[in-house]
């Protein structure tokens, strides 16, 4: 696609590699930082504000509803939380929400015998961006293969490569937020 940002040879001799694992969201303005992650059915969102040059990445997997709940969609609360966490961290570094541009990766359906959780993750991510009016300038979603993503947050450069599925870490949906979160403190 024409909007793919070229992944240039790193100008800085010193590279600070940051791995984003499932359930994390991190942002940075440091040109030395290179974030990376490996995705199976998980989805990673790379957000970039080209004016403030703030970038960030999250990595999430939606949980399937319990087996006895048949007509319910995938549990999107956790994905929503990680999206908001990423955006807020970027706003704190000077990004403006209306300037954000997104790239989406992952959401593969690695095992044809299981429910298409990759597709559900991809659909959630697309719907979130549409609702929040954040343009998705590039997506490499679904399919049947795992991906390795490298992202330079200060320049918005991304490189995505297909990797053998056995390279992808074991992905298990994180349970509903633990009791520490959602705690109500009355003053």
């Amino acid at each position: 696609m024409s909007d793919m940002t070229p992944f240039l040879p790193n100008a800085s001799p010193e590279v600070l590699r940051v791995t984003i694992v499932q359930g994390e969201a991190k942002a940075s303005t440091d040109p030395r930082v290179e974030m990376s992650t490996i995705l199976g059915s998980c989805v990673a969102t790379c957000l970039f504000d080209p004016v403030s040059r703030v970038g960030g990445m999250n990595h999430f997997l939606l949980a399937e509803p319990p087996a006895h709940v048949r007509n319910q969609a995938f549990d999107s609360d956790y994905g929503l939380f990680l999206m908001e966490l990423l955006i807020n961290e970027m706003l704190g570094m000077g990004a403006i929400k209306s300037r954000l541009r997104a790239r989406l990766y992952g959401g593969a359906n690695l095992n044809p015998d299981l429910s298409p959780i990759g597709t559900a993750n991809a659909a959630f991510a697309r719907q979130f961006l549409t609702r929040e009016n954040i343009p998705c300038v590039f997506e490499d979603l679904e399919g049947t293969q795992a991906r390795r993503i490298q992202f330079r947050p200060a320049s918005g450069q991304v490189r995505a490569r297909l990797v053998p599925s056995d390279v992808a870490p074991t992905e298990k949906p994180l349970g509903r937020p633990q009791s520490a979160l959602g705690t109500v403190e009355l003053f």
Binding site: F81, G182, V184, L186, F187
Partner: peptide, 13 residues
């Protein structure tokens, strides 16, 4: 009056 950290638990809220 109070402070609630997301992700929220609907019943606690």
């Amino acid at each position: 009056t109070g402070w609630i950290v997301k992700p929220f638990d609907a019943d606690k809220l």
